[in-house]
Amino acid sequence: MRKGQYRFVAGFLFAPVLLYVVFVIWPYIQTFGYSLTDWKGQSQTFKFVGFANYRALFHDDVFMQAIWHNIQFLVFIPVITILLALFFAFMLNAGGRSKAGGVQGVAGSKVYKIVYFFPQVLSLAILAVLFNAVYRSDGGGLLNGALIKIHLVDPDNPVEWLNEPHIVLWALMVAVIWQGVGFYLVLFSAAMQSIPKDIYEAALIDGANRNQSFFRITLPLLWDTVQTAWVYLGIIAMDMFVLVSSMTQNMGAYGGGPDHHSDVMATVMMRNFLYFGKSGYACAMGVVMLLLTLILSVFTLRVTRRERIEF
């Protein structure tokens, strides 16, 4: 490097690093400190209790169940969202009838692209309101209303979607996926458009069909983007706080019902932190969440590492 360049770089980095240390790293350290105490959340008086909070945590059925729900989200949300988004993106960019002279998307692909993106502009709060109306537990709900009309559901016994232990997680996933697909579709489309058309045309000449060109050309060249999408969707799956707390049956506070069947780590933590006044204990949950996400991100990046293809 040229002389002075380090100082130049350091000058630019100093402010953000300082901010990062003060607002991210330091709170982490504080959280860990609090997790070793019986802090009750509303004053600065507490006793040191060692690892008692952590020991209690592993016997806390509700929290263990919550971890399991996050893992289920972690498996299904990214897989389904990415598959749908890839499928749609491929259809919009390269899935059209192959005419002489090139590869193109299905008819009207530009309109679809915009329509698919609509849900992404909704905030999570609005998404919750919208899907609360869809899943509403009486005849006034969109799903129940429609099913009653076609006599699939008895009007006296409508399906309480969000109050059914075996449905509630899926109901939440549908909402998240519905919102997410559009964004990843656009992301994947952009990546696909940067794949040179001549590669496809060459494949076409060699007699590749749609499946082959997708699996042999599109997917390998998109791998980096898919990996990024996976990380982002992982973030969503590990969180889920807003939807769970504003859509599901109330377990004291922050949703999580019925019978904790939709509780995620974040809702259990907040309930303990504020509603039960077990803030030190909640901090221990926070630290466990941190560790889990750390492991997850390292794992994700390792597993998806592949050789890159340059073009």
Partner: peptide
């Protein structure tokens, strides 16, 4: 992005903490 994955879910909590 990986750092973001770590920090986002815990963020709201830390702000309170």
């Amino acid at each position: 992005a990986a750092l973001g994955l770590i920090s986002v879910p815990t963020m709201s909590f830390l702000a309170a903490c």
